[in-house]
Amino acid sequence: MTRYPLLYLIMLIAVTSAISCTGNKASTYKKTRPLMDTIVSITVASADKDSAEKAIDSALSEIERFGNLIDFYSDKSELSEINRNAGLRPVRVSPETMDLIVNAVAAAERSGGAFDPTVGVIVRLWDFANRKMPSDDEIKLLLPLVNYRDIIVDRDNSTVFLKRKGMLMDLGGIAKGYAADLAVESFRRNGISSGLVAIAGDIRAFGLKPDGSEWNVGIKNPRQTSDKDEIMAKIRLKDRAISTAGDYERFFILSGKKYHHILDPKTGYPAYKSISVSVVADTGALTDGFDNAVFVLGPEKGLKLLKEMGLDAVITDANGATHVTDGIREKLTFEKRD
């Protein structure tokens, strides 16, 4: 040892560095499950497979539990109980349901009703699967029941009350983004600091990928013509969320006119000022809460609202023109068109 100290030292460094490099190397682990009536896909970066998989499982359970609380179509959900008791009495809800509704009402207020969770009563009239649209009279009759101001939230008593009988609250326009936030909180509690939660198109990225790069998310081309032009642009995300509202998700064409599922709460009919809106913000509750609102408002008013709220977005308007806010310009790469 004393004769060749330098050589022994080099050898020691070589061995320890080989061990430490392999021991701490993070990989990504991914699981996909059908939850909340959609596909949930979670990727996390971790040096340990077991703890990564356990953390993903508990995040998925969290999403499932939350999804059951606010399921519009299940009689057992807290949301259904609120709807059943519209005009009758306030309903006690769990903290997550309360927080979601507080976020939904805030998005409705800030967007001046361009997003309104009480549009549920009109949503129920439209049958996109069977290409059936309601009559003008049906819409006119129920439209007065659409008003977020009639959602009475009592945080002290943890109750929610829909003021008028017949009102229906549908939280589908914000719940998936909020669920992604819950999943990220669950990962933080379980010591996972990097990953990507995708609840259909509502995506929240946290931390960086194992190679040190940001998470790369594709934004769907709203007018895709083949599998070669599926993606309109790519965006790099770290500790940010993105949600997209597009007129191509659910629609039918009747007498040459496209009727899609993003309804203007003020008219009860589809909104036609945009064809796709992707909102980028710190949380999924914000991105999911405001993507439909900006879609309904259209680029002019939508960009104004985004600026007021400090949010970013890519908007494709009715003419196919793209509008991008300054905050994400450097993170976006548009695909080349042939």
Binding site: N216, I219, E230
Partner: peptide, 11 residues
Amino acid sequence: GRKKDLDAVTG
């Protein structure tokens, strides 16, 4: 496939 550099797709 083609989306090899993408971690997820929104929309």
